[in-house]
Structure formats: structure tokens, C-alpha cells
Amino acid sequence: MQHPSQATTLTPDVSRLKAGEMNLGTSIMAVAFEGGVVVGADSRTTMGSFIANRVTDKLTYLSDRIYCCRSGSAADTQAHVVTAQLSQYEMTHGEKPTVHIAATMLEGIIYQNKDRLSAGIIVAGWDRIAGGTVYNIPLGGGLFSAPWCIAGSGSTFVWGYCDKTFEPGWNKDQTLEFVRDTLSLAMSRDGSSGGTIRMAIITEEGVERVFVPGDKLPNYGGDRV
């Protein structure tokens, strides 16, 4: 019989991160309304427990009236190659790409490199065929269309709020308020999300950027830095 002092101590491996990989976080969101979409994100970039940037712009231009929101590794979510491909598409076909085409291009890159990239993307915008549309591309690939989408570490805290609060048929102002309030709630609960909120209203008329500083956000009881 083995003496208690000689017993092997088992240490559970609770980390799912690869060697040298940082634990990153964010809160991103997109919601479609009649005539367009609203995209939004917090502005905190983290490296583990270290806040690397408090005012990051996570809304990335892809093409005319098409943007993406980025979560995961900041380096892995850079979408410059897709922007170049969409520009080439417009020159080749003589027409602007749709939101679905942009989302499909990004999804292809993420799926083909699913073992190398840590990237979760929301693609949203307006085009003349489908109007305002939202596509979710989770880690590892996949393409899902929905009237609204949230992602990032902060999203786990607000799924229930979104399910209960969202109503089809909202106008632009109601949708903008919904995105602001949802992201503010996520930021108050998720330690890896914070800073300010950057939003963009995308319609046939163009893109309107909206900035909400941290001290102007609804306060749900959490301190923001």
C-alpha cells in the first residue's frame, strides 16, 4: 500500500490557452434595423490582466457601407487583405460587393486558418440587394445571418438581456440606444471590456460614426477605467 506522503498529486489542466497565448477580451455588437445597421464595440484591448490600450477602434472598414467588428487576437483580426480583395472585386465586376460577399470572404480566411487564427468577427452593413444585414463569424469559421449579434468575452453577460429586450421593427434611434445600453452593461460586468463605446450607423445615405465617452454611459453599478 502506498504511503500517503508518496501519493501522486494531480494538478488539473484548467488553461485552454496555447503556450505563449494571451487571454484577450472585448465586447462587440451589430443590430439591423429598417434601412441599415448599427455596429458598436468597447475600446479596451487587453493582454491578460494588462490593459494595453483603452481607446482602441474595433470597428474596421471593409468596403463602402460595410464594416466588421473584431474580437480575439488584435493581430489575427486585421482585415486589410479582405479590404484589398473587395476593392479588386469592385474593379473586376464593376459593382460594389454586398455584405454577404464580404462576410463570405472573411469566413473563408478564418475557416482555412482555423488552427492559426484566434478571430471572431461580426460583419455588418448595407447594400442595395439585402438592405441592412448582420453576419456572425465565430472562432474557427462558420457564417450565420441574424437580426442582431453580440460576441467577445463581454457577450456572455448580456445574451439574456438581448433576448428579452430586442424587438423587431425598431427605428435607427431605438437601435442605437439598444446597442449603447447592451455594450455598457457588458462593460460593467466583464473585466476585459471597458473604456468608451464606438458605434457606426450604416445606411444607404452613408456611415455616421458615434462616440460615447466612458463617463457618459449608463451606469449599471460597475466602475469603468
Rank of each mutant, 00 (worst) to 15 (best):
A102W: 11
I110E: 12
I109Y: 07
A103L: 04
P97N: 07
V99W: 04
G108Q: 08
A102P: 09
E95A: 13
E95R: 12
G94P: 07
I109R: 02
L106R: 03
N113F: 05
Y111G: 06
N113L: 07
I109N: 05
L106N: 08
H93G: 06
Y89P: 00
E95V: 14
Y89S: 04
R116Y: 10
L117F: 05
E90I: 14
H100I: 01
T92H: 14
E95D: 11
K114P: 00
Y111C: 01
D115Y: 14
R116G: 00
L117A: 03
M91Q: 15
H93M: 03
P97W: 02
I101T: 11
G94D: 12
N113W: 00
T98L: 02
D115R: 13
A103W: 12
V99H: 05
Y89R: 03
L117W: 01
A102Y: 11
H93S: 08
T98F: 10
I110L: 03
D115F: 07
V99N: 02
V99Y: 09
T104N: 12
L117R: 00
I101E: 02
G94V: 14
H93Q: 14
Y89G: 04
D115P: 01
A102T: 04
H100K: 11
L117S: 00
Y89C: 11
Q112G: 08
Q88R: 10
K96I: 03
P97E: 08
K96H: 08
Y111I: 00
M91V: 12
M105S: 11
I109T: 01
Q112I: 02
L106T: 10
H93I: 00
M91C: 09
I109F: 06
M105I: 02
T104V: 00
K114C: 02
P97R: 05
P97L: 04
T92C: 10
I109H: 06
Q88T: 09
L117G: 04
D115V: 05
E90R: 15
A102V: 13
N113E: 04
P97A: 12
L106Y: 08
H93C: 10
D115A: 11
I101P: 00
Y111R: 15
